[in-house]
Nucleic acid binder design. Structure first.
Length: 423
DNA sequence: TCTCCGATTAGAC
DNA sequence: CTAACGGTCTAATCGGAGA
């Protein structure tokens, strides 16, 4: 009996953020559309029409103002509440097609399809089902490793003939070679801009060349990750699916401000808000943090202004997830680094040395035990009555730093008050 | 010389 | 009209400090 190859599927939503907006605005289906990053900064999702016009991934929107005007590109702020909800719907449907699923990102999911006798039909079925039930178009790539599944997905997206589904396992060795020779190395998972350039110096420009390079010397030159990549390209599954999302080892919350601020009160207000968010994430994964970093930054693009980007690391004697404790230390840290006379554009907090809340023995001799109960109540109230129902006094009352979000669509699927009235 | 640490880099999305 | 370039996260690597 011949052993079946591993069949790993990678399902990727097409232009995900744009597709989410289009579900509720079918009039945009044939129009150029782009979605901006936080603070309405850069174009992070583009419809095919916008790509065709020449909107590059990640371009700052002020640099394409003329393009937007001349072609009537539809511009949206990011609506993460909507995208997260749509993502949940897509992921939940995909979970029906395999018992083993890894949700890799907001718009991507791996499925282990090994052992199914109907992989071809299964892939086609999920492809049709997701768009039917959610309105989000996807592409399905299948291969013997995650890296090849990703590459298959690239082929599915690129080749109209594939109709959105491509399985590299069904090709003869000769056919595989001809596919891989036509894909540049930069499309490989794990090969970014720098590696593409370095590889090119060694005469490696196509995926086929990379796959067939000598493993020992490539490992020496580029490290273990490169070795894994090459093995995966040869069909050896080195990177396993991770079904359970593991607890974060570091939690960052930071944001650029809508406009620069000069007073410590404004920065305090923002920082308190970021600490609240970070602490909530920490509690959500049942962790506590032993280290906190606070940083503030001036606007690095305004080079004519004086620049100042200090940070301070604060060890927490008692690791905690208590917003009040963390806020107190963060604000003390801020005092120590803040200098008047600068215009600050960004601030943030980093929680690290994270460990499980239940395993920590605690300080038996602490005079005042930490009040975790109050945090539980706060989280419950905010879950029940909406984010921000209860917050600490320092948190986000000034708003002077709030990010720009001028073109956000309604929260169609999660907020009664934002459902447009049909006419 | 070895190890540990923080900082930096590269990559993904 | 202005001013205008994102946010998290991980792993590898590097270089200095201290043992």
């Amino acid at each position: 009996m011949q052993e079946q190859p591993r069949s790993i599927g990678l399902i990727d939503c097409n232009n995900f953020y744009v597709s989410c907006e289009r579900v509720f605005r079918p009039d945009l289906l044939t129009r150029p559309v782009i979605i901006l990053s936080n603070n309405d900064g850069c174009a992070v999702s583009r419809s095919n029409e916008a790509k065709a016009i020449g909107v590059k991934m990640g371009v700052p929107v002020f640099k394409i103002r003329d393009l937007v005007k001349d072609h009537g590109i539809e511009v949206f702020s990011s609506n993460y509440v909507l995208y997260a909800d749509m993502s949940n719907r897509v992921m939940s449907i995909l979970s029906e097609y395999s018992p083993i699923q890894e949700i890799y990102s907001i718009d991507e999911s791996f499925l282990d399809l090994t052992g199914f006798s109907d992989i071809r039909e299964r892939a086609r079925a999920m492809y049709e089902r997701v768009v039917r039930d959610t309105g989000i178009p996807v592409c399905v790539g299948i291969g013997p490793s995650k890296t090849l599944a990703k590459l298959s997905n690239f082929v599915a997206k690129r080749h109209p003939k594939s109709n959105g589904v491509f399985n590299i396992n069904l090709l003869s060795p000769g056919q595989v070679n001809s596919v891989l020779t036509n894909i540049p190395t930069e499309e490989v998972w794990g090969v970014g801009r720098k590696l593409t350039a370095s590889l090119s110096e060694f005469g490696i420009d196509t995926v086929l060349q990379l796959r067939d390079a000598d493993i020992a010397s490539m490992r020496k030159k580029f490290g273990v990750v490169m070795e894994k990549t090459i093995r995966e390209l040869r069909g050896e599954a080195c990177i396993e699916l991770e079904e359970m999302a593991s607890a974060k080892k570091q939690i960052i919350n930071s944001r650029s401000f809508g406009k620069s601020v000069g007073t410590i009160e404004d920065v305090q207000d923002a920082l308190a808000h970021f600490v609240s968010n970070a602490a909530k994430k920490l509690r959500d994964q049942h962790s506590i943090a032993g280290m906190m970093q606070v940083f503030i930054q001036t606007d690095r693009f305004r080079t004519e202004r004086p620049q100042y980007c200090p940070s301070v690391t604060i060890p927490l004697v008692m690791p905690t997830a208590n917003s009040m404790t963390l806020q107190k230390w963060a604000l003390a840290g801020l005092e120590s680094i803040f200098r008047p006379g600068y215009l600050y554009k960004k601030a943030g907090v980093i929680l690290s040395e994270i460990c499980d809340a239940s395993t920590y023995q605690g300080d038996l001799f602490a005079s005042v035990p930490e009040d975790t109960e109050i945090m539980k109540v706060l989280d419950k109230m905010n879950a029940r009555y909406g984010k921000g129902t209860i917050k600490l006094s320092q948190d986000g009352s000034r708003q002077s730093w709030k990010m720009r979000q001028e073109k956000k669509s309604p929260e169609y699927t999660t907020n009664w008050d934002e459902i447009p009235v049909c006419v």
